[in-house]
Amino acid sequence: MQKVFDIKENKQKFDELLAYIESQDKSQGVLMQTLHKAQELFGYLPIEVQKFVSEKTKIPMAEIYGVATFYTQFSLEPKGKHTVGVCMGTACYVKNAQLVLDKLAKELNVAVGATTEDGLFTLEATRCLGCCGLAPVIMVDDTVYGKVDPKDVPEIVANYKK
């Protein structure tokens, strides 16, 4: 799925990002928050947005690209409508989170880290979500599902297909 990024269409978001950049104290290291803000606005960090940040903050593009690709939470690709994250922390792993992940990959017919063709789901293996008492855990957008059995997967997924 190749999505073309339309700068004109996103004018309002760029304005908002600019206002954010101007509100920050430049001496205190602003790049991380700025990229967080940009991702919150655009959903991901297309090269056009990185260039915009570079122009406005006077931080070299190379540095911005370096940071954007270093941290796993920054995404250079657009994500699906829903993000399904399977916790791969130790507590979940020893309770067979791998089987849940495999089942999800099969059910959604998508590789881990990729987005389904219809653009509905992005499947991810995430770091520990910190609710180890509920292991194994999956998180769909902001909702956490605990003690997930691979058998529960079709039902959970179906809720988001509507």
Binding site: L31, M32, Q33, H36, F70, Y71, T72, F74, R127
Partner: peptide, 27 residues
């Protein structure tokens, strides 16, 4: 006091990497 958010890099728990991250660099 100000809050700074990480962005999913385990190495940022190491103090020098953490500081690099706050400064806006790769951790």
């Amino acid at each position: 006091v100000e809050i700074r958010l990480g962005a999913g890099a385990f190495v940022c728990g190491e103090e020098t990497a953490l500081m690099a991250s706050i400064e806006g660099q790769r951790g």
